[in-house]
Amino acid sequence: MKKAKIIFTVVACCLLFVNGAVQGEDFEDSAIGQELVNIGLKFLDNPGDFFFNLHMANEDFSPVPFKKHGSIRWNFFPTTLPLSWMNLNLKVKAYGEKNFVPQIDIIGQYGDLLGLRMLEIEEGDVEPSFNDYSAGLVFSKTVAEGTQFYWGGKYSNVSMEVKLSSSSEVEFGDFKFSEVKFDIKDTFIFAGITHQKNMEDPKRLVVQMGYGLDYKKIVTRMMMSHEHYEWGIDILPEGMFVIHPFMGWHWNF
């Protein structure tokens, strides 16, 4: 049971309030309680979609800023905190914008759910596995002073397998969890704009909309990026949570 608690602290701690909601009969009947139950059911129906949406926060496919060669980024909320989902996003400017040829950036991202590595494997359990990565190319062109239009494509993958022995099953309201298994891959195309009001000030606004070819997932991002700190929201209209706030740290070099 201890292991089960660790798993759910790791994989669904933001859903723990649902556990309380579904056990309180009066609360369950209320509008908010019902909404929480619906959210919980949505998670149970497709946990992979929820993790894939979180994975979006780890990615940053906006172009390398003006006069920089690359960027390293770490998203600390809501992945590393509270889920122990470590991640790194790396951007490299492969070709600088010159005349009519756009800037070309190569971008990759990798993450790992450290909480899963802490699990003790018992007899009957399958060793937990987790993958999180994405890679892609971004083209950008300056369309006005301080404004870059960009477009590109990326391939994203998040997969996870956790299988519990019968003694480790987790009760979740009327449901029992014994296995979480998904493998979601998709190719996205996207376009967006970065806008820097003052060229001496690294602060810039990023807006972007992307579309997944397989799952037909729409992702919209609005982000404010400062010298090292950035924050924003991803909007996933069909997701368990429509709005995903995120915060990250980056170093542009």
Partner: peptide, 17 residues
């Protein structure tokens, strides 16, 4: 899927470039 993504990206780029 990688190749398909590459083709899509190339086409998108060829459209915009």
């Amino acid at each position: 899927k990688f190749l398909r993504g590459g083709v899509v990206l190339l086409l998108a780029h060829l459209f915009v470039l």
